[in-house]
Design a protein around this nucleic acid. Structure first.
Length: 638
DNA sequence: TCGGATGAAATGCGACAACC
DNA sequence: TGGTTGTCGCATTTCATCCG
């Protein structure tokens, strides 16, 4: 499924992705990408500047330098953009405490707090570093453009494949783009919904549109976070100022009368024009000149589609022979201000329902959302969605560049393929979600290599009604071990036999006991059984009732290399003492493994080459049994 | 103007009190 | 008494215009 609901146990770093207010220079954007390329010229420049400009935090500096030379380069927003706080009325601090300020210049000459001018080691004055906020906007836009990845769990930012291509393309130092860069960036922008929306608005306007006209339909128009001054107000005030000949007021209006949406549009326009997709033209407005009494005119900047723009729009919209581009949507783009979790969730669910259908009416979408399991979440606070609300949201989604058409039967149809994205929900927002789904949602984003059907283990481990001699929990657990974790062995089941046995080419032998209990598995009364199995395989006595041990290769040293493992959803009772007794009694390593731990260790095993059977068996038989005792460490290794 | 810059509002977060 | 909720003050994030 393209859109998934993921549950996060812990707080995740907040970072608003998709749009950027202050992004103008594409050269800075590309330079930023090169920071992620070990040994690139930009990296060398960054390191050189960090050597004298970095604040007095050697550990922080070394940590960043280390990350810069470790492939793949992974940096958090703090590593990339944090700054020393600015004091009101004083110049921004020129000392840096992150990497991007080292290569991204601000607009003014660096000043000390007392307004004196510092010099660099060569004795020259230098530009003050770009502030953290504009830098964050660059990162945010690069994520929206599919050039950078942002990992919500650990906050790491890394290059995408396209980002790497662009970072390694032929470069210039000036703002001018090489043809390689132009090609790659045009491709990126045609997957960037805002840019497509922008071009689409211009398509049928031969005379071009100014930022206010574009603002009427741009983004979630009119919402907080997408405010526009509006053409009427702006042009009206400017006409008045011109007619009264008030040049101070003219200047004031021109430089200050701009709101969020207007700013976004100017930024996107600036980039699209550098990509040759639009041209910038003057749009005249007439007024009566106060001195001459004749009609005169002033101009606003307007934007017009170029031939390249029309061509690329055709690619984005899948016209003629082209296939529609996949549009990049992030959860964070779906609302920026106010009750964001609620609104983003609703909008994401609308997209999800449309993505899963060939067309739905507003009422049908509302019904589906109201019936959705996540509707039990407190973030919905028991409210229900109406068809009218759905229609409003869809209008906004069209505004950010996702094309949702209305069919003749009043059905909404999603035209764009969407890149996979997630609806992230954190623990505090979901206190009462039932255990199974909650834990599955929590694990899902962590499991990149383990097949997600094994998430069923979570459900099976808690459902004691499923217990039988040949339980699903047992067979799935053994299937995981034998199919994915490179063990040989068998799923046995039945009386007087272990649930499962496994061994590997290193000579390790493992007895697996699984049991499903909704309230946790207690070892009390369940240790004798496993002790007997251990004795069985060591004794190899053919007179015993069960001779399951004949399946175990005789080459294995079951006296020294035998381990046992209990698998369940959770464990209760005084299991530490019972486990210790059992280990001593059998002289074997052994432990209790929750299905969560089983899945996480499996993921680590499949992810990390250095984590083999030795580490796997150690983790299955150690004393880290409760969630808090293993979770952080395992997740850190994924 | 372009390409960011900025003070302040909005929001999050830890700690500790208060309240079932 | 224990677990949840309220709140106070500080920290971080994001706005909404501002500006050299």
């Amino acid at each position: 499924m393209a859109i998934t609901l993921n549950y996060y146990p812990k707080k995740v770093k907040r970072f608003s992705t998709g749009l950027g207010q202050d992004v103008g220079s594409l050269r800075s954007m590309i330079d930023m990408l090169q920071v992620f390329v070990v040994g690139s010229s930009i990296q060398r420049k960054a390191k050189a500047k960090m050597s004298w400009q970095f604040g007095d935090e050697p550990e922080l500096k070394n940590s960043i330098l280390n990350k810069l030379s470790t492939e793949p380069v992974l940096l958090t927003t703090d590593d990339l953009a944090s700054e020393y706080p600015k004091k009101t009325g004083k110049p921004a601090v020129w000392k840096i405490r992150s990497v991007l300020p080292a290569i991204m210049d601000g607009q003014s000459i660096a000043k000390n707090e007392d307004e004196s001018i510092p010099t660099d080691p060569s004795g020259n004055v230098f530009k003050t570093p770009m502030r953290a906020w504009p830098i964050r906007n660059f990162i945010s836009s690069a994520i929206g453009l599919g050039l950078l990845n942002w990992n919500r769990i650990n906050g790491n930012i890394s290059l995408t494949r396209l980002g790497k291509q662009l970072a390694e393309a032929k470069h210039l130092v000036s703002e001018e783009l090489t043809s390689d860069e132009l090609t790659l960036l045009q491709l990126a922008f045609m997957s960037y919904p805002y840019a497509v929306a922008f071009l689409r608005s211009l398509e049928n306007n031969k005379d071009g549109l100014n930022k206010f006209q574009l603002g009427e339909t741009f983004g979630f128009a009119g919402e907080a976070g997408f405010t526009s001054f509006g053409e009427e107000l702006y042009v009206g005030a400017l006409t008045e100022a011109y007619e009264s000949g008030d040049s101070f007021r003219i200047k004031k209006i021109k430089s200050n009368w701009e709101s969020t949406s207007d700013k976004y549009i100017r930024g996107i326009a600036s980039m699209l024009s550098k990509l040759k997709l639009i041209s910038i033209i003057p749009q005249p407005f007439s007024y009566k000149n106060p001195k001459t009494g004749k009609n005169s005119h002033f101009s606003l900047t307007a934007y017009k589609l170029t031939g390249y723009g029309r061509e690329n729009l055709g690619i984005a919209l899948g016209r003629s022979k082209h296939k529609r581009t996949t549009k990049i949507i992030t959860w964070d783009m779906l609302c920026t201000k106010g009750n964001v979790v609620y609104i983003r969730t609703i909008r994401a669910l609308i997209l999800m329902e449309l993505d899963n259908s060939n067309g739905l009416t507003a009422g049908q979408i509302a019904n589906k959302i109201n019936a959705n399991k996540v509707n039990k979440m407190p973030i919905f606070e028991g409210t229900t969605i109406s068809g009218e609300e759905v229609s409003d949201h869809i209008k906004g989604l069209n505004g950010i560049g996702i094309q949702i058409d209305t069919s003749s039967s009043n059905k909404y149809v999603l035209k764009d393929p969407l890149q996979d994205f997630e609806i992230p929900i954190t623990a505090s927002q979901l206190p009462k979600k039932d255990n199974v789904q909650r834990q599955q949602d929590e694990l899902r984003p962590l499991l990149a290599h383990v097949d997600h059907r094994y998430l069923q283990l979570v459900e099976l481990a808690l459902d004691s009604s499923q217990n039988s001699e040949y339980s699903m929990l047992e067979s799935m657990t053994m299937e995981l071990l034998l199919t994915y974790l490179d063990f040989d062995g068998a799923s046995l089941g039945g009386a007087n036999k272990p649930d499962g046995i496994a061994w590997d080419s290193d000579g390790n032998f493992l007895i697996v006991d699984t049991k499903a209990y909704d309230n946790g598995y207690s070892l009390a009364g369940n240790t004798d059984k496993v002790a007997r199995y251990i004795d069985d395989v060591r004794a190899r006595d053919s007179n015993r009732t069960s001779t399951w041990w004949t399946q175990v290769p005789e080459s294995l040293n079951v006296d020294d290399n035998l381990s046992f493992m209990y698998v369940s959803g959770s464990f209760t009772g005084n299991y530490r003492k019972l486990l210790k007794d059992l280990r001593a009694r059998t002289n074997a390593r052994g432990g209790l493994t929750t299905v969560e731990k089983l899945l996480l260790t499996s993921e680590v095993y499949l992810t990390n080459n250095k984590y083999g059977h030795t580490q796997l068996l150690r983790d299955w038989t150690n004393d880290a049994i409760e969630h808090d005792e293993y979770y952080d460490q395992l997740v850190a290794n994924i």
